[in-house]
Each structure stands twice: as C-alpha cells, then as structure tokens.
Design a binder for these strands. Sequence first.
DNA 1: TCGTTCCCTGACGTTTACGTAAAGGTAAGG
DNA 2: CCTTACCTTTACGTAAACGTCAGGGAACGA
Lengths: 162, 162
Amino acid sequence: MRRGHGVDWSASGTGMMGEGADLNGPAIRLAIGELAGEFGLTHRTIRHYEDEGLLTPERAGTARVYGHRDRARLALICRGKRLGFSLAEIKDFLNLYDTDDAQIEQMRYMRSLARGRILALEQQLRDVQQTLSELRTIDTQISEHLRRNGITETHGMEEKHS
Amino acid sequence: MRRGHGVDWSASGTGMMGEGADLNGPAIRLAIGELAGEFGLTHRTIRHYEDEGLLTPERAGTARVYGHRDRARLALICRGKRLGFSLAEIKDFLNLYDTDDAQIEQMRYMRSLARGRILALEQQLRDVQQTLSELRTIDTQISEHLRRNGITETHGMEEKHS
DNA sequence: TCGTTCCCTGACGTTTACGTAAAGGTAAGG
DNA sequence: CCTTACCTTTACGTAAACGTCAGGGAACGA
C-alpha cells in the first residue's frame, strides 16, 4: 500500500494549511483516484466534471486535492445523473446547495430554479411510481404464467430482493 | 381543414384493411405529424425511433400509418425518456409489455429484465424523493431568508463566481 | 396549373459525456 | 538508478439522439 489515506505525494503547495480538522469536521483531502474509486467513476470523468465547472478541487502543486465540499458535490452529481439530468442542469442544481451569501434577486432566481426543478421531479416521481406499478404487474403476470404453464422446469427461484 | 382525423392523403396500400373498429376499440390511424403533435416530438424523432426498432408503423404506400400499439408504445417511450433511460433500454423495456406468446425461457428472461428494472426504479424513486425533500427545504429556506431580510439589502459583498 | 401542405429518403452536422491514447512529471521503494 | 504507481495535460475518437438540409413525390384547393 502506497498511501494510508489522503493526499501527500506532491508539493505541499503554499504551506498555508497544516492539517487536522476545520469547523466542518476532520479535513478530508482526497486524491482523484480515491474519489474515483469511492464513487465508481474514472479519473477522466471527474476531470471532465471539473472542466464543466462542477468541481473545483484545490491543487497540491499540479495534483488535484478534493475536500468535503467536492465529495458532497460529487455525490449530488451522481444522483443527478441517476435521475437523468444533464451536467449543465446539475450545475445550476448544485448552485442551489450553496446559496449562502447570494443577493436578494439572486435568491429569487435560485428559488425559481428550485421550484422549476421541484415540478419536474414531481412529474418524475409520478412516472417512476407508475412504471414501477406496471413492472410489478408484469412480473406477477409472468410468474403466474410460468406457474400455470411451466411447472415442469420451475427451479424454485421465486423470491428476490430483501 | 385538410383532414378530419386520421390518415388518408396517400395510396390506400394493399387494401387489406377497410376501416372501423377491431377488438381493441376504434381503429386509430395516425399520420406522423399527428403523432408528433400529440407528443410534442418532431417527425425526425419519431422516424428515429422507428430506425431503432422502437416503432413499426404500417405503410399506406410510402407514408407511415400509426395505430393503437404505436401510440401506446410512444407514450411509454416518452415516459422512459423522462426517466432518463436510453433508447436501447427502452427497447427491451417495451418488449416486457407485449410478451404474449413468449417461450418459457424467454419469459424467465423477461421477468429477470423486469426485476432488474424494478430494482433500478426503486433506487430512482428514493433518489427523487430525497432530492425533492432537499429542494423543498431549499425553497423554504430561501423564502424565509427573503422574508427576514425583507426589502433591505444584505450587503454581504461575498464574491461568488457566476 | 400552380401553390400549399403534407409526406418521403438519404446523409452530413451537432451536442453531450465521456473514452482513449500520447507524452510526461514526481516520489517512494528495491 | 530504475521501476512502479500515482498524477498531469492535450487532443482526437466515439456512441447516442437527434437536428438540419437537400431533393423529391402526392394530394388538395383556388
């Protein structure tokens, strides 16, 4: 094993940060490979997200160093992807999550974005529920069909998910 | 008005179908433009779905004629797209819906497909609910923030990138 | 007959979201 | 010192899902 955990195989940068914990808990300093492994992504993908402005890791010399914020954002990115959003959509979606110090008008805009997304997601929720319902019906029907017709070779592999 | 409803502006094809109702209700015979309008799609998109094997309309001469089945499948395609599935995924998804005469092994396979999709959708359902919950929180927080700060400007002066 | 409104088939262009080399820097370990 | 295991940038490639011409046919109304 080359590294216990975290990044230190490069120049320590400006030296302005020692180590240890900040107000948000223990400081996490991850290399790209660690982050990639954790989320099941490639390095390329994570760099791509940076190119698209979704992540803004620090640098230790030339190497990228990811902290809390990046990890959290990446989790949101992954969820957004699972929900079928584009990176562009995810980008301003992410901005909704760190609206600490926005101006009034900016916040109104953010809220309108949030509400638009809420409406879309409510539709999506209905879609998912509808589809799930139909698929469960299909599953049941197939199972019944197999029970009626194919008892000859029913290998008893009935139950599935916990 | 050019056409009351349905298709008739082309050769009547082989003449093997008169008109009227079959067992599934009144026969629907739509032109591509009608279907496109109904679903808010372009002709190109619908033809693309045919290229990909998702739709198999009849022909009246050279023109495409869409019936019940196509309309239903297109609705499922659109929902699939809203859920972020690829056309390829939607394709075998569609096959789950017309498994009338499949063989035993085929049906087992179908059921496994259905179950896989169910698991994915259950995950997606959780994702959507989680995201909705968070967004509603954000909406509320922004609204409260706007109410607290009223019309007076915050003068936060914190820099943010656009 | 002409114009309009439908439709058709190619076939190349575009965007998104990465994949995949190519070429190389850096630090630990044998 | 050299290999190994990380990381870097630059840049062309690709698959999906269409968009966008280009060129053309067939019916209908004035």
